[in-house]
Each structure stands twice: as C-alpha cells, then as structure tokens.
Design a protein around this nucleic acid. Structure first.
Lengths: 245, 245
DNA sequence: GAGCCGTAGTGGTCGGACCACCTCCATGGT
DNA sequence: ACCATGGAGGTGGTCCGACCACTACGGCTC
C-alpha cells in the first residue's frame, strides 16, 4: 500500500483512476458505474453539479458535459432549478435515442432497419395475439376504424402508429415495444411514407391491418405473425426496389 | 432552411426559432438536422467549435455540450488538435450506446432484453445458415474449437461472443449485428454468466453451440433458428427463475 | 529528397460570473 | 389553526476569457 498523506478526497480518487481518456469521459464512466453498482437508485437525486465536480476533482464545465452526455442517453434528467435525477431507467427512457439512429439512417441501412422491425413486429404481434385482453383489443379497434374513416394522410399515419403501438404494448415486453417505437418514429415513417403512399398503398395498408386485427381477435399467433411480417415486408420490398436504380 | 449569412443571420435565425428548450438542445437539433438534410456528409469535417458557436449565436461552452451529446450518440467524432468530424454513420457507430442500455438494465428488464436477443439471434442464425460462406464457416469453427479447448471462463466467454458475432455478421445485416453486439456486450454477458456457470452450464453451452454449428454446416435455416432460440432461451429461463423468489 | 522542427490552429480544461427557475419557509392575513 | 403570499437561497443554464495538450502543416536543415 502507498502512504496516505491525509490527502484530499479528489486527489485520492484521481490516483485510483489514472488518465484513461478525457476527463469528461472518465466522469461519465464514474457516474455510470455508480448507477450500475447500485450506489444511485432510479429516481434518486444526485449531488449538485458543483459538488460532483469537486468530488471528482474536475471543473464544473467538464462535469456538465458528462451530465449532458448521460442526459441524452436517457440515464439522467436535469430539472432546472431543482437538481439532477436518475431516471426510472425504464425501456422508454433508455431507448429514446434509438429513434435518432433511425432518423439518421439512409439508403441500405433503412432497409436493414426495416428488416429488424419486421422481425420484431411479427413476433410482437404473435405474442399479442396470445395475450391481448378485450380492453386492449378495443383500443386497437378504435385506431383501426379511425384510420379507415379518414383520408388525411397525416391522420392515417398517426392512427397507424398508434395501432401498432397498442399491439406492441399488448405483447407484454416493454423493451421490445420501446425499440419498435424507435423504429417507427415520426420522421422515419414520414420519410418512407412520402413516396410510398403515392402508389395507392392506403387500400393495401387497410387490408393488411384488417388481417392483423382478424388474427388478434382469433387469438391466432401464427396468423398474426404472418400478417404482420407481410405488412412490414411490403414496405420493405418497396424500399428495396427504390434503392436499386 | 439556411439563410445567406449577410450580417446578423445568426441573430435572425435565433429569433426565428424562439426558445423551444435549452440553447444546447436547440444546437443539438440544428446539427442533427444539418446531417439529416445532407448538409453534412459522413466523414466530413465540421467548422471549429468557436465558429459553430458564433454561427448559432451561442457560447462555446453550450456548443461543446451539444457536440459532446452528439459524440456519445456516435454521430460526431472529436479528434483532439484536428477537428470535429461526422462519423460514417454506420450501424456500429450509432448503436454503440445500445450496450449502455444493457449494462444499466436489471431485474425484469434483463429478461426482456434477453427475449429480444433470442428473437433477433434466432433469426440471424437462420439467415446465416442460408448465406454463410465456407470462409465464414471456418471462422466460426475456429472459435468453436477454441472454446472447447480451454476451461478458462474468461477465454470461453470471449470465444462465445466471437462465435455469435461471426454468425451475426454472416447474416448480412450489419444493423442487426450491431444490435446483437450491444445485447451481448461484455458487462451484460459477464454479469449473467457469473451465476450461470455455477450450474455446470459449460457442457450444455458447448452442446448447444455444436448444434448451431451443425445447422450452419447443413445450411438448414430452420434447424439453425431452433438451435439458436433454444440456446438463448436456456439462459433466459434460468434468469427468469432467478428472479422469481 | 528525406527527415526534423517550430508554429499556428484545434479540441480539452479550467475558474468565475451572472441569469432563470424552482423550492421552501417565514410572513401575514383570514 | 389554516392558507395564500412573498422573498431568499439554492439549483441548473449560459456566457466569458484564459490556458493547456495535441495535431497538422509548412519551411528548414542536412
């Protein structure tokens, strides 16, 4: 053991963690570790920025960057005038950034994302067919009829999203639902739809949604899986063909 | 849209976009929009922090926070002394944060993540069975035999990860491979293994890997899917049982 | 021509100052 | 005793200016 010259706490902890990268990066890891080790519980409030900075022996600016980084990751939440809190660390919080990935993807990667969505969506729909309750089914039907009752693309899209969101929720896996939410995020869907809807895809979409709904009512997982896979696969194939020329 | 920088374009655009949130948040959105709109190509270098800050009419500190945020998201890359660059926006870059989610998840969410992994991994393995080349197959075998040749848990885990990574790569969907990488990230796997291996799971794991390998050699997608699902499902069930009491 | 080296420019860090906002409690009225 | 009100303190948000660490590039030497 080395001598302990009654040094300051920051000097001590600084010695424990030699310079691996930037100061900010180290701060991020430290806070992440605190949460992973259970030192910080979900919903708990952190010390102030000034305290944290002093505790790790870094400036407030660097600490703020670290906090900002963990904020965009959905791990921390800063409330102006109140303090910094650990989020509930739920799927929705942590997977919010997933939508960013979808929004920034183009070309071949869009097809890949759609393929992932097809896999997850078909399984989620199959699970939902087995587990969905009457109340949840009523909610799904609400969006189905609302979607059929209008011709406004904006509204159709909104109910389309809600339709699938309700089904994903009924599947009983919040993590999967959150990922599907990201894969169907506003910008992502809107971008694809812009060109897709020009080919009279509304009628086909309505037919496919009806098929999915029938499978849910019948509580038939296999039929639901097939219907959902076909539904997403339809868009996927169209996108793939758009990419060819 | 971008205005031609005549005199006070930044003050003007700042006035056009009234306070939606924090200044930093707006800066993040602005840069994200620049990339999404094609104004910034992958690999391209951005103006300096000082320039960007002046351009958006904010301080360098705030701009730095915005850049840090986009850095942890895998969108930007800052090279000390050189400049800030847009990443290649490949799946690996953008989904790196996915591992953070896995590392910070506990309890029921771990099971949910494992369920997602089972779905993706089984599909990826099925795709790999149909598409895998002899070279890729040789690589898979390398890790299989290496894994069977040692008793060091550390080494076994490493080859286990590589085994699945090669298969995911052979599936031909980089996005899916990147997601699986995150779902199998070091900490995540190590944490589960710590307790799992105590029940003599090594032998079973080896048997299951052998089954997956056989299906790949036979180019039998259905067998591969079943073997992979069973493999992940095994751990999933164990974890589920650990959670019950 | 190859290699060295200094300089300019970049991101990284720091400390301090002020502002905007929230929280809490003492105050005073009912 | 209760509640509305207001102010004070504390918190995150923003800005500034300075300096450090590192990289890139060009001129210099050999």
């Amino acid at each position: 053991m080395e001598e302990t010259p009654s040094a300051e706490a920051e000097a001590e902890s600084a010695a424990n963690a030699p310079q691996k990268g930037t100061v900010t990066q180290r701060a991020i890891e430290r806070i992440k570790a605190m949460i992973a080790d259970g030192g910080l519980e979900p919903g708990q409030r952190l010390p102030t920025e000034r305290d944290l900075a002093a505790r790790l022996g870094i400036s407030r600016s660097s600490m703020r960057e670290a906090i900002r980084a963990l904020t965009v990751l959905g791990v921390l939440e800063a409330r102006h005038g109140s303090g910094i809190y650990v989020t509930q660390l739920e799927a929705g919080d942590l997977l919010e950034t997933f939508g960013v990935v979808a929004d920034l993807s183009r070309g071949p990667r869009l097809v890949e994302l759609l393929e992932v969505r097809r896999i997850l969506e078909s399984t989620a729909t199959a699970l939902a067919a087995a587990r969905i309750t009457d109340d949840q089914l009523a909610e799904v039907e609400k969006h189905l009829t609302a979607m059929n009752a209008t011709d406004d693309p904006e509204e159709i899209l909104a109910h389309d999203l809600a339709f699938h969101r309700e089904i994903a929720a009924a599947a009983g896996n919040e993590t999967m639902a959150a990922m599907l939410e990201g894969l169907s995020s506003r910008t992502f869907r809107a971008r694809v739809w812009r060109g897709y809807q020009e080919e009279g895809a509304f009628a086909r979409t309505r037919r496919e949604h009806a098929a999915i709904h029938r499978a849910l009512v019948a509580h038939d997982p296999e039929a639901a899986r097939a219907a959902a896979a076909a539904h997403v696969g339809e868009v996927e194939e169209w996108l793939r063909s758009q990419l060819r020329p």
